[in-house]
Design a protein around this nucleic acid. Structure first.
Lengths: 132, 132
DNA sequence: CGGCATCCCGTTGGATACTG
DNA sequence: CAGTATCCAACGGGATGCCG
């Protein structure tokens, strides 16, 4: 809670910084967590709606992911004691800042994933036809 | 090397965007990859030097990580045919842009990891003393 | 020095079935 | 509807040992 003068120090991530980042990414950097945060970035959604929008996530992983995000204070869980029950999930302000921090990386991904895909194809080609 | 005017488009990651991001993170979002990119952000380093600086990475993972990064065009591998052999690894310009895209997330991690840690402790406390 | 190959075990995560 | 519980297959990743 001290240095807020971050001001993009243009340069290197120290080893400690990397540890911190790696640590956070280990928690929120996995595929499903990213999808959930992204999906919720448009506003609160019900359990089933998240499941539907993501498509392909198992209930197990959705539940685990939401629970972890709730514990970490990134989403809120609101239970409406109706019948049938209804549960809304929504990004907290912390969650919103996370989403914001994700944006540059998302743009990098969008801009470069094709380049990377091509690089992989080239590498695969070299693989199957080595230098004569 | 062009748009630094990211200007945080305030709004939502589409499902497609999330897929792209999740996809990239699946490749470069793991602990060791982050550490390697971070370590190389200060300049080119030899294999052993990377290993030493990261500390705790197995040769297997270092080799695999470097190979993937090389294939993806994020680092270059330069072999000096001396004896004993010497190999330098260095971030490409693509790698540098990746590092740049990682910075906001790194800052977010630095600013919020303590909050998250506290949230987890609170959650654990609730866990062991349920409502009477 | 800078790797690659092998073994091997822990964790991750999908499928499935049951509950409040 | 919104989960919980169990089983099990796949993968990740450390330890070890050998090679150029």
């Amino acid at each position: 809670m001290s240095e807020t003068n971050i001001s993009v120090p243009d340069s290197s991530l120290s080893a400690t910084d990397c540890k911190g980042l790696a640590d956070i990414l280990a928690t929120i950097g996995d595929k499903w967590t990213i999808m959930v945060v992204g999906t919720l970035s448009k506003g609160p959604l019900r359990y089933n709606e998240i499941e539907r929008r993501i498509g392909g996530i198992s209930q197990r992983m959705l539940t685990l992911t939401l629970k972890r995000l709730e514990i970490d204070g990134i989403v809120t869980r609101t239970l409406f004691p109706t019948v049938p029950p209804r549960v809304d999930y929504e990004l907290t302000s912390l969650g919103q800042t996370l989403r914001g921090a994700l944006v540059p990386l998302q743009m990098w991904a969008a801009q470069n994933k094709e380049t990377i895909a091509i690089n992989r194809i080239h590498a695969a080609a070299k693989e199957s036809s080595p230098a004569p």
